[in-house]
């Protein structure tokens, strides 16, 4: 049970989870990530999965992303996407 603070809730009190975080990526000519900067630069050992999302094209902010699920040389897995509109990379769990 969360203690009742007796304070009025306000919209600012709600924060979204799993927001994309900008991340630096070195990619190959075909656009596949070769290494990512997660504190330090880490080499990508393998691509576990790759998928694309195209949605909300009727809005000013179009969602067009290419996701990668990567296995790093360290053995960790990371999920990130490239925003196809501006080429920027973001980390986001899927």
């Amino acid at each position: 049970m969360v203690k009742d603070t007796r304070k009025t809730l306000c919209p600012g009190a709600f924060k979204p989870v799993d927001l994309p975080e900008a991340i630096l990526v070195r990619e190959s000519k075909s656009g596949t990530p070769l290494s990512v900067r997660d504190c330090t630069w880490q080499t990508v050992a393998g691509v576990e999965g790759c998928w694309r999302i195209d949605d909300e094209w009727w809005r000013p902010q179009v969602v067009s992303r290419l996701y990668f699920e990567l296995r790093l040389a360290s053995g960790c897995k990371i999920c990130l996407f490239k925003n196809l509109a501006d080429g920027c990379w973001f980390r986001q769990n899927y």
Binding site: V47, E48, G49, C50, W51, R52, L66, Y67, Y94
Partner: peptide, 8 residues
Amino acid sequence: NLVYGDVG
């Protein structure tokens, strides 16, 4: 078609 799950 780059749909989630295609690879697996």
